[in-house]
Simulated scan of single mutants.
Amino acid sequence: METLHPRLRPWREGDLPAFRLIQTDPDIVHWLAGPWTDEQVEAAFARMLGGLRERGWGMWAIVDDEGVPVGAAGLQPVREDLACAPAIEVAWRLRRAHWGRGYVTGPMRAVLADAAERLQGEEVIAITSVPNIRSQAVMDRLGFRRDPAADFDHPALDAAHPLRRHVLYRLKRF
């Protein structure tokens, strides 16, 4: 599988340790509502490897200047238990040392251009918790527009959890 952008490449079997570092980075897991177990990390890694191979689209490795994975970006099917399912969502995560340096916005533009050709859909969505204003700013830069009527409470988080309320952004006719 070819890359879509110089900072993106398909995940490789040997990337599991780098992915584990991404998924255990405190600045990332905060927005994922807490740390993941080894089993969750391994299952997510397997889904990412399989998604690109099976569908031709999915989550890519974001790499640094040395080619080491420091994040993930791409498309994924929305979890079935979310109010916005079924849909395709954009998603990303990036180690803090690389925030604010274009490691997400540029690659995501390439992902969206590829998706427009491959999926020929009416829209893709982006979701995040209300307090995650950094991700919302990326969504705005990518051309997504917030749909306040579609905001929802995440079913995996209890009513008192500060990340429970999620906002939904749409990119129409991408």
Rank of each mutant, 00 (worst) to 15 (best):
P6K: 04
R9S: 08
R9Y: 03
L16R: 04
A18G: 03
A18S: 09
L21D: 09
Q23W: 08
T24C: 08
D25G: 05
D25L: 05
V29P: 05
W31D: 04
A33Q: 07
T37V: 12
D38W: 10
Q40K: 13
Q40N: 10
Q40L: 14
E42T: 14
E42Q: 15
A43M: 12
A46P: 08
M48S: 11
L49T: 09
L49Y: 07
W57G: 03
W60A: 00
A61Y: 00
I62D: 00
D65E: 14
E66R: 01
P69T: 04
V70N: 03
G71M: 10
G74D: 04
P77R: 13
E80A: 15
L82D: 02
P86H: 09
P86D: 10
E89R: 00
V90M: 03
V90G: 06
W92D: 01
R93E: 13
R93L: 14
R96I: 08
H98C: 12
H98K: 13
V104I: 15
A110H: 00
A110R: 00
V111K: 00
V111C: 00
A116V: 01
R118S: 13
R118T: 14
E122T: 06
E122L: 09
A137R: 15
M139P: 05
D140H: 13
L142H: 09
F144E: 03
R145K: 14
D147W: 05
D147A: 14
P148I: 04
A150I: 07
D151T: 04
